[in-house]
Nucleic acid binder design. Structure first.
Length: 259
DNA sequence: ATGGTAGCCCTGCTA
């Protein structure tokens, strides 16, 4: 089973590249973030033509998530459950489904903007809600994949220059603690399960020629429960998808699980 | 020196 996640920064702008990538990479499941599309505008027909069913969750021109699957898609839910208070209520940042016997969650964690702002504070509260929701919905012994743009670089080796990010969001201790808390519950960073080296990024700012200068961050994560972690065949960040015409500023993260 | 780009639409806001 090949599972991938990709923040496409507008599915409308990126549809040709997503179609091209699906044909090239042949994922069984693809989690999307920043679709920036209301559900009524989601291009489900384009994906059907390539053999994928889809579950979309979007309201307007901001955020928006989806799951594409060619191994079936059932029990679709959007957002947290009714009892969970969502500090970003109104945004579309989470969609879950069961695909080919695996529980899949596509997440788009709030950016947080600047440390010290209420956006940053609510990002941490959103992480609390995510942790609580996962713990309520699933067990660490379930086959579960939580994939998406976490807007956190888990460690210093996940950014091109820790010094350049001092005082910025994505690298603060509370944000990193929020990711560790998910790991302590029972999720494993699939990419780190396979690779230790630094310099492997999933996001490069469009500005300053950051991609070509290799100034990036690894903020797109595929987290899996232990029963799946022990079956990971390989993992990779498809850096090539950041090249060429009209790329997203993120690139896909892909894992193969022997199930 | 607070820069730079891309994408959306209330040509400013979000990332």
């Amino acid at each position: 089973m090949r599972i991938a996640t990709w923040n496409v920064n507008s599915l409308k702008a990126r549809l040709p590249r997503v179609e091209e990538w699906l044909e090239y990479a042949q994922p069984d499941v693809l989690c999307l973030q920043e679709t920036k599309l209301a559900d009524k505008n989601f291009p489900s027909m384009a994906f059907s033509a390539l053999g994928y069913d889809s579950a979309a969750h979007g309201h307007n021109q901001w955020n928006g998530v989806a799951i594409l699957s060619r191994v079936g898609i059932e029990d679709v839910t959007t957002g947290f459950d009714d009892e969970t208070i969502d500090p970003y209520e109104g945004d579309a940042r989470l969609v879950a489904a069961r695909c080919g016997g695996i529980n899949v969650v596509s997440v788009y964690v709030p950016n947080g903007r600047e440390v010290g702002t209420e956006f940053y504070d609510r990002k941490l509260v959103w992480f609390d809600a995510l942790h609580g929701w996962i713990a309520k919905q699933y067990s660490p012994t379930d086959a579960l994949v939580v994939a998406g743009d976490f807007n956190v670089a888990p460690e210093d080796r996940d950014v091109w220059s820790p010094k350049a990010f001092e005082g910025s969001t994505h690298v603060t201790e509370p944000e990193r603690a929020a990711v560790r808390r998910l790991e302590e519950w029972g999720l494993v960073d699939a990419f780190r399960h396979q690779y230790d080296q630094d310099g492997l990024y999933s996001y490069w700012d469009y500005r300053r020629g950051d991609f070509h200068q290799h100034r990036g961050m690894r903020i797109d994560l595929v987290l899996v429960t232990e029963p799946l972690a022990e079956k990971i065949g390989w993992a990779l960040i498809d850096r090539n998808a950041r090249k060429g015409k009209q790329p997203s500023d993120h690139t896909p993260v892909v894992i193969d699980i022997d199930v």
